[in-house]
Nucleic acid binder design. Structure first.
Lengths: 105, 105
DNA sequence: TAACATACCTATGTATTCTAGGTATTATCA
DNA sequence: TGATAATACCTAGAATACATAGGTATGTTA
């Protein structure tokens, strides 16, 4: 596990990124991030759900309910605004990398 | 300026890094980080001073007062514990980079 | 002599994230 | 069959980090 404090502020770009290929539901996003990060990232459900609601409120995401095998799942997908925001955030991330390299290396 | 929210959690590694060559005083650290980052990072004094106090309390840093040109300056230097912590944090940083790459790229 | 730069500091507010719960359904296994 | 685990959603409150917005004091420069 990474130092949790290191992660503050990066949740939005992580979530928008994992949604960039296809719509996913909350529980799936948690597992997905865990898997993709080799278990280094473990975003708590208590962090994810409020954040999904916030991103939806900001029109970055939209949601729809879908049923599969008797289970109701709430899917989230990137809106046009969300796609744009993801691009911006990836640029910010690159600048951040460059800056950190300059300062700490 | 980088998105400020992106920076949360990285202040300690930044401060320990800029102190790794020589002891510096608070005001100098602010200017130093600003310069090294091409003005991308602008750590507020209201962020820096309490953080220096915290790092000193945790024995990562030690301080001493020195006078130059009639001005009193409080210098901070890395302790042995601080040097060790810096190494650990740089490893954490590398892991974080790798993880972010896996998740967002 | 006024304004700016240097140099230290703290109190309070805001934003983010975690902890620690809660509910309900389905799958597994003893 | 009954208990436990996994799936799937959620929220309230605490903890933490950082920025904002001040404050004080001295030295420098216009």
């Amino acid at each position: 596990m990474l130092n949790k404090e290191l992660l503050k502020g990066f949740s939005p770009i992580i979530i928008l990124s994992v949604l960039s290929d296809e719509a996913k539901y909350g529980y799936q996003i948690v597992k997905d991030i865990k898997k993709k990060s080799d278990k280094s990232l473990n975003i708590a459900e208590g962090t994810l759900y409020p954040l999904l609601h916030k991103l939806e409120k900001e029109k970055m995401l939209y949601s729809f309910w879908q049923e599969a095998g008797g289970r109701k799942r709430k899917y989230y997908a990137l809106s046009a605004k969300g796609k744009k925001a993801l691009k911006t955030q990836k640029n910010d991330w690159q600048l951040f990398l460059k800056t950190m390299h300059q300062v700490i290396d």
